[in-house]
Design a protein around this nucleic acid. Structure first.
Lengths: 207, 207
DNA sequence: ATTGTCCTTCTACGGCTGTAGAAGGAGGAA
DNA sequence: TTCCTCCTTCTACAGCCGTAGAAGGACAAT
C-alpha cells in the first residue's frame, strides 16, 4: 500500500469518526502511525489534503463498482422491444439492496466520509468535479430503467438514484438509523429490497 | 429578536456557508455584529453552542411546519373506507414539491445547516434527540399514505420521507444541483412534482 | 444611598493548527 | 570516493480556538 493510500485512508477514517473538524495533518499522522509531519510534507496545505481524500474516495468507488456490478449490464443488451419481467425487477431490487446493505456495514466509514465531502463540495466546487458521486451508478440506473420500459429513462434513472440515496442516508444518519432493522442482517436486506422494489416499480410505471 | 436567536441564526449561516469548521465563537460574534466574546459568554463550550444551533433549527422547522402545512390533515380525517383519488394525489404531490422548492431557495441555508448537523449527530447521539429530523413530516406521511390506501402505511410513509429527502439532498448538493432546473422556477416545481408524484404512486400501490 | 445580583464586555492563556523550512540520510551517477 | 538529488523526519512560528475569569455597569430591593 502506497504512502498516499495510507495517508488518505487514515484521513477518511478520521472524517467518518470525527467529522471534517477532526481532519488535521497531525491527527492523520497519529491515526496512520506515521512520524509527525509526514502528512504535512505530502500535502502542504489543508486544501490539497482534502482533495486527496476526495480523489481516494472516487478511486475506491470505482474499485467497488467493478467488483460489485449490478445486473444492469445484462439487461442493457436486451434485444430492443423486449422488456424486463417482474422477476427480473425482483432480482434487480435484491442486488441493489445488497449493495446498500454493504455500504451501511463494511463501507460505512467510506459512506459517511463521502457525505461529509459532498457537503464540503458545496463551498468548494472544484471538489465536485473529482467526487462524481454516483455518476456511474446513474448511468447504470438509466440503462436499467430504459430496459425496464420506463417512458423517460434518463429522468427516471436520476430519480431512482436520488431515492435510493435518500434511503441510504436515512439509514445512515436519519431516523432509519434507529428504527430500521440493523444493517448486515437478512432482515435489513429484506427491508431494503422491499423499498427498492417499490421505487423501481413506481419509476417504471409512472415516469 | 432575542440574543439567543441572533447568535444561533448567525451560527446557522456560518455552518451553511463554511461548514462545521467555520463555526467558532469568534466567527459567530463577527457575523452577528456582536462584541467579541458575546457568544463565548452565552455558550461557554463549543458543544453547548452546537446544541443551541440544533435546537434553533428544530424550532424553525416547527414554525415552518405550522405555516406550511401539507394537505395531509384534510385527508387524514376521511371517513374510513374512502380513499384518495388520483386528483388528490396530484394535488398532494404539488404541495410537497412546493415545500421542497422553498427549502432549496428561501430555506437553503437552513437545509444545508441541518444536513451538516445531521452528520454531526452521528458522533454525538444526544443531538439526534433534539434534531428530530422530519419526525413530524413522517407522521404526516404515514397518515397520508394510510389515506391513500397503502397496505403498510407506516413503512410506506417512512420510505416516502426517505425518498423525498433523497430528492432534496440530490438537488442541494448532489448531481441534481447541476443538472436539474434551477430552484425557484416553475420548471423546477414541475420537475419536483413529477418526481414526488411517481414516488407517491409507487408507495401507494406496492407497499 | 448601599448592597447585591445579573448581564455584558474585555482580557488572558494554554493548546492546537496550518504551513514553511532546516536537518538528516539513502542511494545512484560520476 | 565525492557529489548531487530526492525522500523523510523534525523543528519553528505565527495565528486561531476553546474556555475561564476579571472588570464594568445596569437596575431592583432594601
Amino acid at each position: 500500500m502506497s504512502r498516499f493510500e495510507v495517508i488518505t485512508d487514515a484521513g477518511i477514517a478520521l472524517v467518518a469518526e470525527l467529522g471534517m473538524r477532526g481532519l488535521t495533518h497531525r491527527a492523520v499522522d497519529a491515526r496512520a502511525g506515521l512520524p509527525l509531519g509526514t502528512t504535512s510534507a505530502y500535502f502542504r496545505t489543508r486544501k490539497t489534503l482534502v482533495e486527496a481524500l476526495v480523489r481516494r474516495l472516487a478511486d475506491l468507488d470505482r474499485v467497488e463498482l467493478a467488483r460489485n456490478r449490478l445486473p444492469a449490464d445484462e439487461t442493457a443488451t436486451l434485444p430492443p422491444g423486449q422488456r424486463l419481467t417482474a422477476a427480473d425487477l425482483d432480482r434487480l431490487a435484491e442486488s441493489v439492496a445488497a449493495v446498500l446493505d454493504e455500504w451501511l456495514t463494511t463501507g460505512r466509514t467510506r459512506t459517511l466520509a463521502r457525505y461529509a465531502c459532498l457537503l464540503e463540495a458545496t463551498h468548494h466546487p472544484e471538489l465536485r468535479t473529482i467526487l462524481d458521486h454516483g455518476r456511474t451508478y446513474r448511468a447504470q440506473a438509466r440503462a436499467l430503467l430504459a430496459a425496464a420500459g420506463a417512458a423517460r429513462p434518463e429522468q427516471a434513472g436520476d430519480h431512482f438514484v436520488a431515492c435510493v440515496d435518500g434511503l441510504l442516508f436515512d439509514r445512515l444518519v436519519g431516523a432509519g438509523a434507529l428504527t430500521a432493522p440493523v444493517p448486515g442482517t437478512a432482515e435489513s436486506r429484506a427491508d431494503l429490497t422491499t423499498a427498492v422494489r417499490s421505487i423501481l416499480t413506481a419509476l417504471t410505471a409512472a415516469t
